[in-house]
Design a protein around this nucleic acid. Structure first.
Lengths: 346, 346
DNA sequence: TTGAAAGCGCTAACAA
DNA sequence: TTGTTAGCGCTTTCAA
């Protein structure tokens, strides 16, 4: 059996409560006893039982990440891995553990976080992405749980969330293409149930409108965060009588599919078509040609989300936690995929 | 305050232990009381306190994943994300929670898992990759903790581990190139401190030897699991007087760097150089040209590791847990990057 | 500055 | 089949 606080107390000739006080750096403890107790702890190889501590202190020092359910939804691996890295790094720094949960479907997801939260296993949750209608958000909000959203909620705009200003980012990307002289610009979106798809589409539209450019429904294609989406989209676009000369894409990975498709059709980037996408994954610098991409500071988003959640957890009771959206700044990185001016035929 | 077992007991007119028995599906409980108790639990919104349960049952129903420390070591995001997905899916299915831990350095890592394991926060650990000399493995082994390794340990060959037969896989990849007629084959390896680098290099060498082919030290380059490594390696290779006509690469991502480099130097794949790499990430199908790659079943590895660890945890005391390496089968997927026969000048 | 005692929410002998 | 009781390892009043 493991060494307990009692064992230490006995060997040190003090009471268990004294040992406990040493453990928590209680101010009113003599330096002498403290030293001695620590020595014994070391000698005996004592490790505090986290469960017991949490049980009595009614706090878990843990947060939970809800992982997207399926491989398909795990779109850009890079995106999630970076987010997780940011979250875990910051949480560990604050002495919090991170639990990872997932479910086969939305009901599963709700049950999972419910068990964890109500069962006092974790103090809060971070949702890695925002669906337009999310039962998990409903659940968390209704039950007054601590959580933060990567992205934003349409139903509850005041929810604690960390986001890119996707409307602006998409606006910037589109304006960049317009500044290059493009007048027919397409958009390859993500799944319509994700808020990010909606926001980026909006920014794209706004940029066209502000520049007095035409927008055609057939220049907008919905897809997944997968190469296949880009691949499919491109064969569609290039067969249009009045095809776009530039495209804004929801994710770098989609761009890779586009590059592949264009290569097979014998088109060149940026000569025949200019591309700008989002997320600026490391690979986008190494594709042929390198991709222009909006860097949204993914690691930073995770880091910030973690920080906010822990803050909210620790503030319980006191001044109501600051709610609302925290926007992480974005930055358009221009590379070869969008450096030429308007291609032929424009 | 949350609803406890006592509240349920009182309202149902039974004792707390009866409620506890209902909770754990104890066989000797009347259907009638069971039904009633469940009803009350539902009504009151009862959720068992996991901490309390774990404290008394002296088991945590949790495992921990140790995340590579830095972004650089997080080589192929895809690799880790798939592994994690496999681990979490299987663990959740068995009713286990997954904690994720990381550290700024090796000492941090040891302290982290030590705190979690000795503090009875988790029952076991999965290490996501194998370093040649790993203090974490030393620690876990010496303290008799339950853990499984993705990869293998050189020091402790009997450790529970899930691995690809990397020697064979690399042998297969190399033999494939040889069967295409190549006689000068290069190898771009990963960090020398990783066991996987060593094993794949060995398979490559063996294939050359078995085929009576020459191997030159300058045909072997060490690097990271990054595009840059491939990019750098290629400018080195292509300047060699007797340059390789084909290369085996430690990871698909490295291949992307190679493709980029070759493109800039105006070489073509597979006409000028054939490539085969490892991991078969989704993107490898969509590069230009699509990459031949060894699929090592990453999700499966994670899934299996999770299963083995939980098995080991649950078997404690009884028949000693089966140790040793579990090999996940691999499969070479041939695509355009290696379909041509020997390039010019060979 | 320290100790004694109660209790966090649950399980599991032992009785009944 | 159910209830009583004694903890799991820790923190935290209250008293000394």
């Amino acid at each position: 059996m493991a060494v307990t606080i009692k064992d230490v107390a006995k060997k040190a000739g003090v009471s268990p409560s004294t040992v406990s006080r040493v453990l928590s750096n209680h101010p009113r403890i003599s330096a002498e006893t403290s030293r001695k107790v620590r020595e014994i702890m070391e000698e005996l190889g004592y490790h505090p039982n986290i469960m017991a501590k949490n049980l009595v202190s009614r706090t878990t020092n843990s947060i939970c990440i809800l992982l997207p359910k399926s491989a398909e939804e795990l779109f850009s691996n890079f995106f999630f891995m970076e987010l997780i890295r940011g979250i875990v790094t910051q949480a560990n720094r604050q002495g919090f553990d991170v639990l990872i949960s997932s479910g086969a479907n939305e009901k599963d997801e709700v049950e999972g976080v419910s068990r964890l939260l109500n069962g006092h296993r974790v103090d809060g949750v971070i949702l890695l992405y925002s669906r337009i209608d999310d039962p998990v958000v409903d659940f968390l909000h209704k039950n007054n749980h601590k959580f933060v959203l990567i992205g934003r909620s349409e139903h509850y705009p005041d929810i604690l969330s960390v986001d890119t200003d996707n409307v602006q980012a998409s606006y910037d990307a589109t304006k960049h293409l317009i500044s290059l002289g493009h007048e027919r610009i397409g958009f390859v979106s993500g799944p319509p149930e994700l808020v990010v798809s909606k926001d980026r589409l909006k920014g794209y539209m706004q940029a066209l409108i502000d520049s007095g450019l035409e927008s055609k429904p057939e220049w907008i294609v919905e897809g997944e965060f997968l190469q296949e989406s880009g691949y499919r989209a491109i064969s569609f676009f290039m067969n249009l009588p009045d095809r776009p000369t530039a495209i804004v894409l929801i994710d770098d990975v989609v761009s890779f599919g586009v590059l592949r498709g264009l290569h097979e059709l014998n088109y060149k980037v940026p000569e025949d078509l200019c591309l700008v996408s989002f997320n600026n994954i490391p690979l986008s610098e190494m594709s042929t040609p390198p991709l222009s991409s909006v860097d949204i500071g993914i690691y930073n988003m995770g880091y910030t989300a973690s920080q906010l959640l822990i803050q909210a957890i620790q503030n319980t009771g006191e001044a109501k936690t600051e709610l609302g959206r925290f926007i992480i700044p974005h930055r358009l990185v221009v590379r070869e995929s969008s450096i030429f001016s308007v291609p032929k035929g424009s």
